[in-house]
Design a protein around this nucleic acid. Structure first.
Length: 896
RNA sequence: GCCCGCUUGGCUCAGUGGUAGAGCACUCGCUUCACACGCGAGGGGUCAGUAGUUCGAAUCUACUAGCGGGCACCA
């Protein structure tokens, strides 16, 4: 006899199957030998090499794997391509930290050695997240794993850079940028964090040059006044109309600065006059350009005051300088007032340092043309298609419309060094390689730009650089555009939009048909999980505690809406996994004699017993639902359909209904065919479940006494049987049987009502009862055919069925839909009062429902305007209730 | 300031014009020969509020309130 534990141990299954799938090459698209097969492609959003798996990854990977496994089983050639990105800033941060422990700075090491250390660090750490992805069960094709700094992908980066430069879409310029004084690099607008702060607003007086009095300006950053080169007012502000053009004396430095008029200034705010610091504020920078103002840099790249700030300030930290400025204004009587003020401050997304706007020379990518490509694609062809469309399509297009040029250089060493070289004369040569640069320059004396590119620049090329671009590889032709991108909403701008733009630019096709935006798993208080808050849940710990499959079901259920983490939910899916395990255990313990399971339902359903026709109908409807749900990214709905089918239909009813035949001692053909059918339904259910629960389903499927290769399409002729390559069940319309479902429902209702009587009349579970059933001809034959099962499931010793039955007075009764009645004789046991109360409650319920329906029907507008089938349906329901009410009245009368 | 989302039983969430659902929690009864990570039977919601559209609204529209998010920022 087979020995199967009562409790499913997920670790056992997780240990074995993944390695086997991977070794045998099942994840690679080549496993499908049909060159005509449709193609399904996903590229993974590359995690940082520095990172480890968090809940967001687990969520996205679950959905990607569900889709990939589903399509693979549906006969597609599927490619899910894994990889990581090099994460310039964070990796450099990590390596720098490591060096610091050795008492070294990156400059002590020098660029080459530093980069070598970074590679070493990458080799040591990339393995971790790759192991974690394996643990998830992700069916990614490891043979195509990529890293953004691989030679091939780097080639794509340089190619893209050169092409964009040659077209004038990349340029080098001197502009105001977001500078991180800690990381010592520029950041793009998207890497800036806006952090609300409680601060102060300082009102400073600037005296006129040639007359008494002063103009008051308000500022949150007094130290920047040292770099002021003007004061601006609104041209329509009458208060200041006559001072426009006059000169002020900038206190502390005694610099002469003009009063200019600019529409940007809002008269209502502060004093209505704005100090202008072109070198240290983006808006002032713009204003400075409009009025030809001098740019005086008073803060340096370390956020310290420069010589230009004056001898007293030079070398001070910006915050020390602030205090000193205020102190001096106060002593000069030029500090009008200081008020509390809330505003947002720009911080570095990674290290949270307050950024310093600085003017510096950087490389930029012009976005106007690229943006237009993306917008046109969206407006004319609706691509890519966002799911859910609301609100993401609008979020995406709104952002594109207001797009500014992208700062792509970074003052870092780890990353793609900008492929620009400078000659001694200062000429710039942009080329794919140093050799090409030398050839272009006609000289070997070149110095390469020190900076590297923003990591997102290489990520933007990911959907095609990973497939071999710029070469026209077979992979590129076959797998691009990819089918769907699954990602979190916070990188729609950083990443999704940029991939679309580069894809359209370089390939002429959008990189993916669909973009599915997942919801976010929040903590139990509704807060986003984050490292700094320390409220994150480690998916690996959840895997350990509840199993990977249960975790996957939980995450798939999140879908596209934010959901609070609820461990009880995982527990319930763990229980579901155990339920599946035990259902299979039952089937296996009763599998002796079951032969040719794949032919268990041969011969068509016409002569099958009701419960077989019913479960086939339910199974095929479920297959239909789940296929449709997965095609529309309704992960939550698919999980619900599967859960309901397996637990409620298959376990609670089909298995129970089958037991009468299956557990028979004798080796009869009826018993054996019923056993085969039970296993067949289980086998198909496992295939339906597999994309969500890969480990459990493989484990059980392998144990089934079936000819496994029968379920594998021919294109896998050389593969060992595995459920992951078996065909995904499709709906066979011929097996959808509404009549069987209606009839089965009547049987289920009957059994439920009798159980209700047993419970309410306090009949002991072990006590056998007698059932008297009265039903009209059609229902009568249905009940008659199922009488053994009815007896078993109501624990009845005897079941009598007839058209008309004399119901004993001492019986508990129930009136069913369709006018059927059931009585449970309870000689001497029945409490008349209790039974009357029970039936009255039931009658009240019916009455309430009937009243509601009647009032609807009483409305002439309803009858006139509602669709006729709705009206008919209503009438039928009323009639049924009326019939049942009459019957109930008779029973009540008899109990008097 | 602009834009968006959410508000359904104690909790976490489904449900998008026609009889309010699930899981968990709760009550009662069960060591019934797959499963106590279980089985059977129950209780519990005027679907945030107001007004409207409609024969009919949890579902569509408008407004209000609360919560959450995005974007732009006022120095």
């Amino acid at each position: 006899m087979i020995d199967i534990p009562k409790i499913y141990d997920p670790k056992e299954a997780e240990r074995h199957h993944y390695a086997r799938w991977e070794e045998r090459g099942y994840f690679a698209p080549e496993i499908n030998a049909n060159p005509e097969a449709p193609v399904f492609t996903i590229v993974i959003p590359p995690p940082n090499v520095t990172g480890s798996l968090h809940m967001g990854h687990a969520l996205q990977h679950t959905m990607m794997d569900v889709l990939t496994r589903h399509k693979r089983m549906c006969g597609y050639r599927t490619l899910w391509l894994p990889g990581t990105d090099h994460a310039s800033i964070s990796t450099q941060l990590m390596v720098t930290r490591q060096l610091k422990k050795e008492g070294l700075s990156r400059h002590d090491l020098g660029r080459d050695k530093f980069v070598e250390r970074a590679w070493q660090w990458k080799r040591e750490h990339a393995g971790q997240i790759m192991r974690q992805i394996r643990r998830e069960g992700a069916s990614v094709d490891w043979s195509r794993e990529r890293f953004t700094m691989d030679e091939e992908l780097s080639r794509a980066v340089y190619e893209a850079f050169v092409r964009l430069y040659d077209e004038g879409l990349i340029y080098r310029g001197n502009r105001i940028v977001n500078w991180c004084p800690n990381d010592q690099t520029v950041l793009s607008d998207l890497e800036v964090l806006r952090d609300p702060q409680k601060g102060k607003l300082y009102y400073l007086r600037y005296p006129f040059k040639d007359r008494d009095g002063a103009i008051t300006v308000a500022t949150t950053r007094p130290e920047t006044m040292l770099g002021d080169t003007a004061v601006a007012v609104n041209p329509n502000d009458e208060r200041y109309a006559e001072v426009i053009g006059r000169k002020l004396i900038l206190p502390l430095l005694n610099r002469e600065i003009p009063i200019v008029a600019d529409e940007f200034v809002e008269s209502e705010f502060g004093s209505g006059a704005v100090k202008v610091t072109p070198a240290h504020d983006p808006n002032d920078y713009e204003m400075g350009l409009r009025h030809n103002l001098e740019q005086v840099t008073v803060i340096d790249q370390f956020a310290r005051m420069t010589e230009a700030a004056g001898a007293e300030f030079a070398g001070l930290d910006r915050y020390q300088a602030r205090d000193l400025v205020i102190e001096k204004f106060e002593s000069l009587g030029l500090l009008e007032k200081v008020i509390d003020y809330e505003f947002s401050i720009s911080k570095c997304e990674r290290c949270k340092t307050v950024l310093e706007p600085l003017i510096s020379t950087q490389w930029f990518c012009r976005m106007d043309q690229l943006r237009d490509l993306a917008l046109r694609k969206l407006r004319q062809e609706g691509k890519p298609r966002f799911v859910p469309q609301v609100p993401y399509e609008k979020v995406y297009s709104d952002w594109l419309e207001n797009l500014r040029d992208w700062t792509i250089s970074r003052q870092l060493w780890w990353g793609h060094q900008i492929p620009a070289w400078y000659t001694k004369d200062g000429d710039v040569i942009v080329a794919r390689s140093v050799e090409e640069a030398k050839a272009k320059a006609g000289t070997g004396e070149l110095k390469q730009d020190e900076d590297v590119l923003d990591t997102w620049f290489s990520s933007a090329l990911w959907p095609f650089s990973t497939l071999g671009w710029p070469d026209e590889t077979e992979d590129l032709k076959t797998f691009y555009p990819t089918s769907v991108l699954i990602t979190a909403r916070d990188i729609i701008f950083l990443w999704v939009s940029r991939m679309v733009m580069t894809g359209l630019k370089f390939i002429g096709k959008e990189p993916f048909d669909d973009v599915y935006v997942t919801g976010t798993v929040l903590d139990k208080h509704g807060q986003r999980m984050s490292k700094t808050k320390g409220n994150g849940i480690d998916p690996l710990e959840v895997f350990d505690k509840y199993g990977v499959d249960a975790t996957r079901l939980t995450l798939a259920s999140v879908g596209s809406t934010d959901t609070r983490w609820n461990e009880k939910q995982v527990e319930s899916y763990r229980n579901f996994a155990n339920k599946i395990w035990n259902a299979a255990r039952f089937c296996l313990l009763n599998s002796e004699g079951a032969e040719a399971v794949e032919h268990a339902f041969a011969g068509g359903p016409a002569n099958f017993p009701l419960h077989d026709r019913w479960i086939l109908s339910r199974l095929n409807k479920t297959a239909s639902e789940v296929n449709a749900q997965l095609d529309t990214y309704d992960f939550h709905g698919a999980v619900q359909s599967l859960y309901h089918f397996f637990w409620d239909d298959f376990c609670d009813w089909y298995i129970e209904l089958s037991k009468a035949t299956i557990t028979a001692e004798n080796d009869s053909p009826e018993r054996n065919i019923a056993r085969a059918r039970l296993i067949s339904i289980l086998e198909q259910s496992l295939r339906l479940l597999h994309p969500f629960m890969p480990y459990l389903t493989e484990e059980l499927w392998q144990r089934l006494p079936v000819n496994h290769s029968q379920f594998l399409p021919r294109v896998y002729a050389n593969a060992q049987p595995t459920i992951m390559l078996a065909a995904y069940p499709q709906c066979d319309e011929a097996l959808v049987d509404e009549r069987a479902e209606t009839e089965m429902q009547a049987v289920i209702d009957l059994i439920s009502r009798v159980r209700n009587i047993r419970s309410e009349m306090n009949i002991k579970p072990g006590d056998r009862i007698e059932l008297l059933i009265a039903a009209k001809s059609d229902l009568q034959s249905v009940f008659a055919a199922s009488s053994d099962q009815i007896a078993r499931l109501t624990r009845a010793a005897q079941v009598s069925i007839d058209g008309q039955v004399e119901m004993p007075k001492t019986s508990a009764r129930a009136v069913l839909a369709g006018g059927a009645e059931v009585a449970v004789p309870l000689e001497g046991l029945i409490d008349f009062a209790q039974e009357r109360a029970r039936l009255s409650r039931e009658k009240d319920k019916l009455q309430k429902e009937s009243d509601k329906l009647e009032s609807q029907l009483a409305n002439p507008d309803f009858v006139a305007r509602a669709p006729s089938d709705k009206v008919a349906e209503l009438r039928a329901r009323i009639a049924d209730i009326a019939q049942r009410t009459v019957a109930l009245d008779q029973v009540l009368e008899a109990l008097r």
